[in-house]
C-alpha cells in the first residue's frame, strides 16, 4: 500500500503538528485510513481577541502539500446553501482552485492556508451572518465564477475570451502557431505566449481539464450561452 504523505515526510508532519498546537490550541490531528484530518474549532481572531469560532474538520489530501486541504464546517451553524458558499455536506468553497495554485506555486503552506483563505472565509461568514456582504467580494457560482477567475488570470476583458483561454489550456498539447485565444488573430507565440505558458507551468493539466469539463457540463445541462 502506498505510504501517506505524513509517512513519507514525517519531519513535515511533526513540524506542522507542533506549530499548530501553539497557534491553534483547539485543533487536533488524527489519521483515519491513511488520511490526515484536523478537527476542533477554528478561531476568528483580531487584535489578540477571539471574535468567534467555528467547528471544523480539515482533510489534508494524500498528495499534501501539493494538494489543497478540504475544509468542512461541522457545527451545522452555516446554512448549506450556494449563497453561503457551502456544499450540502458542509464543505466550504474557499476559492477557485487555480487562483490558489497560482498564488502558491510551491504547494500549500499549512499556516498560509489557515491564516489566509480559511480565516478570510470565516471572517466573511461572521459578517454575512451579521447582515453585511462578503468583505473581499465573491465569485459567481459555477462556470461563471471559473470564467471570472480565468479572466483575471489571463487579463481577458470578457468571459467569452476567458472561455477560449480555458478551452485551449484544457487541451493536452498546445502549438505556438495556433491562433491566440485572446481574439487578436495573431499566433500564440507572437501574442499571449507568456501568459499561457506561465499558467501551464504552474497549474497541473488535470486542473484545467476539470474546470473545462465543469464549464462544459454546466453549459450542456443548462444550455446557457456564455455572456460577454
Amino acid at each position: 500500500m502506498k505510504k501517506g504523505w505524513f509517512e513519507e515526510n514525517p519531519a513535515l508532519f511533526a513540524k506542522i503538528q507542533t506549530e499548530t498546537r501553539s497557534v491553534y490550541p483547539h485543533l487536533h490531528f488524527c489519521i483515519r485510513d491513511k488520511v490526515v484530518y484536523v478537527t476542533g474549532s477554528f478561531p476568528v481572531r483580531q487584535d489578540g481577541r477571539e471574535i468567534d469560532r467555528y467547528q471544523v474538520e480539515i482533510q489534508l489530501p494524500p498528495n499534501f502539500p501539493s494538494g489543497i486541504p478540504r475544509v468542512r464546517e461541522t457545527g451545522m451553524r452555516i446554512p448549506r446553501i450556494a449563497d453561503r458558499h457551502m456544499y450540502a455536506d458542509g464543505t466550504a468553497c474557499l476559492f477557485v482552485e487555480e487562483e490558489w495554485i497560482m498564488a502558491n506555486p510551491e504547494g500549500t503552506d499549512w499556516f498560509v492556508f489557515l491564516n489566509g483563505p480559511v480565516r478570510n472565509f470565516f471572517i466573511g461568514q461572521c459578517l454575512v451572518e451579521a447582515g453585511a456582504g462578503w468583505p473581499f467580494g465573491q465569485r459567481s457560482h459555477g462556470s461563471k465564477g471559473i470564467l471570472e477567475c480565468y479572466a483575471e488570470l489571463t487579463c481577458a476583458n470578457d468571459l467569452r475570451t476567458a472561455y477560449n483561454y480555458l478551452e485551449m489550456l484544457g487541451k493536452k498539447k498546445l502549438k505556438g502557431h495556433w491562433p491566440c485565444p485572446c481574439g487578436s488573430r495573431m499566433k500564440i507565440r507572437d501574442c499571449h505566449r507568456q501568459v499561457i505558458w506561465s499558467l501551464r507551468q504552474r497549474i497541473p493539466h488535470q486542473v484545467f481539464q476539470n474546470s473545462w469539463k465543469h464549464v462544459q457540463n454546466e453549459l450542456h445541462s443548462k444550455r446557457q450561452p456564455v455572456h460577454r
Partner: peptide, 27 residues
C-alpha cells in the same frame, strides 16, 4: 456587543493582506 463585534471584524478585514473570493460549483 454586536456593534463592537462588527468593528473588530472590519478591522480584521483591513488586516488581510491576501484576500480570497469564495466560490461554489453548481454541479
Amino acid at each position: 456587543t454586536k456593534a463592537e463585534r462588527i468593528q473588530i471584524l472590519n478591522r480584521a478585514v483591513t488586516s488581510v493582506a491576501t484576500p480570497t473570493k469564495p466560490w461554489r460549483s453548481n454541479l
